[in-house]
């Protein structure tokens, strides 16, 4: 490569790297706004703005789902295994909603309780045929696998 081309190549790579650093710093400064949701611990620490619409993300706590038999009202706990926030919601839940499943809910925090307007299920990166899940459940390995991904 002749020296002139080498110099041009280095200038371009240098400029792209500098731009990358600049954008990186901006994104780092804005990370609070880019995060899609608050965790239950952040809400417990009062880091989430009060009585404004926010999103909360976490796992649906085992054994916490209570459905009203008369209406579509449902209430459940969202946990990050340190803190838990109670969520109430009226409406149809996504198919993947179940205890132990990741969810992102949108709504307002009132009296330390979140009144949700939208409940979304979060899917993890693991894919398995149903027979494998059954075999894992019988040998007690499934919880171990789930624990690894959380």
């Amino acid at each position: 490569m002749n020296p002139k081309r080498k110099q041009r190549l280095l200038i371009i790579l240098g400029l792209v790297a500098a731009l990358g650093v600049a954008v990186g710093l901006v994104l780092y400064a804005l990370s609070q706004n880019i995060n899609l949701f608050f965790t239950p611990t952040q809400i417990a620490d009062n880091q989430a703005p009060d009585s404004r619409i926010i999103r909360l993300g976490g796992m649906v706590a085992e054994g916490s789902v209570e459905r009203d038999p008369e209406s579509l009202e449902v209430s459940f706990g969202v946990t990050d295994f340190q803190n838990q926030v109670r969520v109430t919601y009226t409406g149809i839940l996504p198919d993947l909603f179940r205890e132990g499943q990741g969810v992102v809910v949108q709504g307002r925090v009132l009296n330390r309780e979140l009144q949700a307007t939208e409940v979304l299920a979060k899917h993890d990166e693991n894919y398995m045929p149903p027979e494998v899940t059954e075999a894992l459940r019988q040998s007690g390995q499934l919880d171990k696998l789930k624990g690894m991904t959380q």
Binding site: L15, V16, G57, K122, N126
Partner: peptide
Amino acid sequence: VLVGVVNLPIIKYSVEWWSALHQPAS
């Protein structure tokens, strides 16, 4: 094109750097 290159690592690591609804890579 070269300015837009900074977007590529952002796409790749977006699900790890920030909380997102999209799952991480399988």
